[in-house]
Design a protein around this nucleic acid. Structure first.
Lengths: 202, 202
DNA sequence: CCGAAACCTGAGTCAAGGTTCATGTTGAGG
DNA sequence: CCTCAACATGAACCTTGACTCAGGTTTCGG
């Protein structure tokens, strides 16, 4: 009757509270990122954060709740990181190249964050879907605009968005996380050649 | 000193044993596929298989062990399914189209199997890597041969393989599992246009 | 047929770890 | 300063579920 949220409002009201919440979120990112959802323990999170076990439940309903909050954070972080890198590209293909390079660089710098988003597929499917649906939506808009400006050929925006995202994710995994035998720029350059020209002989 | 395997050989020696093992593997695929690794229970597997809890440990060391065995199975199943569909394609681009359509059809028919392979990334990373490394290897070989025959343009085989696989996986997820608003053939047709011609205006 | 190996059974064991709670402590407004 | 809401603490609770084991039953070669 009186609370702002649906059930219980765990938003901190003082500066101290906000500080603790931030510590917990960072610790949770570490814990989930390195050990995975299953092996991650609340005591592991609170130990990293340097707070007592009980404090965790001052800020989160459950283990799954932190995870969900974290995925939303990471989702936003990745998208804004890429958006920032791309923001003043002269045309779509250049944007693709810098965006992909930025994405691979991101997975390389924060492999834990990448892992958390992907693991969400099996822990909190709805936020995982939301992440990619949002991503696709932006992508689609960009492709449509570029098509309007005559920068790229005609074709189905949504399907193209999914293809490009799938490529990026796997390239990020392979060349960002698994093995770094090519730099993000090298990967991006070769990829853009493919995206632009295709496989057909001309 | 006497066993064939490293520690304990759990291979069944009688027909009855092989039958039970098969039942357990099928039940495990169901259980892991629908509930995910974390929520899956050994009792769930044995109940589905119609055998006693203890029998499970006659055939597997642990929960993780079944899962690993299952991933290897599924990996082989997917690859042979696609290989079969592609086996007498006249050229590489046709092979790409039929292969993709077969892959999407597969994810649509066996969403649980697809899920198991992907979840392996977080449960048994080594077999997950092995799966894609094997996949890439075959792909690379095919691309190289096609390049030799002049069917496709010059370009880095391995990187192209990763791009194409990433695309397929995401298209399989989106159009095979999440929503089926396009048929596998429609998706494959549009995709092959992109793969072949690229985004550049000509 | 017989005996041993293979296989089956399910109640019981056990550790792990998520969640609760009763009891402090802190700090900002009055 | 005083007070109360916000926040902190960690021992204890309790469910869950992987795994063991002692005692059968089935199969199959000889």
């Amino acid at each position: 009757m009186t609370e702002g949220q649906a059930i219980a409002d765990k938003t901190p009201r003082t500066e101290r509270g906000r500080r603790t919440l931030r510590k917990l979120l960072e610790a949770a990112a570490q814990e989930f990122g390195t050990r995975g959802y299953h092996d991650a323990a609340i005591t592991g999170i609170t130990a990293r954060a340097g707070v007592a076990l009980g404090s965790f439940y001052t800020y989160f309903e459950s283990k799954e709740a932190v995870f969900r909050a974290l995925v939303k954070d990471m989702s936003h972080a990745v998208r804004s990181h890429v958006a920032e890198a791309v923001k003043d590209a002269p045309d779509r293909l250049t944007a693709e190249r810098t965006g992909l390079a930025a994405f691979i660089a991101f997975t390389r710098k924060h492999p834990e964050l990448y892992r958390i988003i992907e693991e969400a597929q099996f822990v909190a499917e709805d936020v995982y879907r939301q992440h990619y649906l949002t991503f696709v939506d932006g992508y689609r808009r960009n492709l449509s605009a570029a098509r309007g400006r005559g920068e790229i050929s005609e074709g189905p925006d949504e399907l193209r968005a999914w293809m490009l995202i799938g490529m990026s994710v796997f390239l990020g995994m392979r060349y960002g996380i698994w093995e770094q035998d090519l730099s993000p720029d090298e990967v991006a350059d070769e990829t853009i050649r493919f995206i632009s020209e295709g496989l057909a002989v001309r």
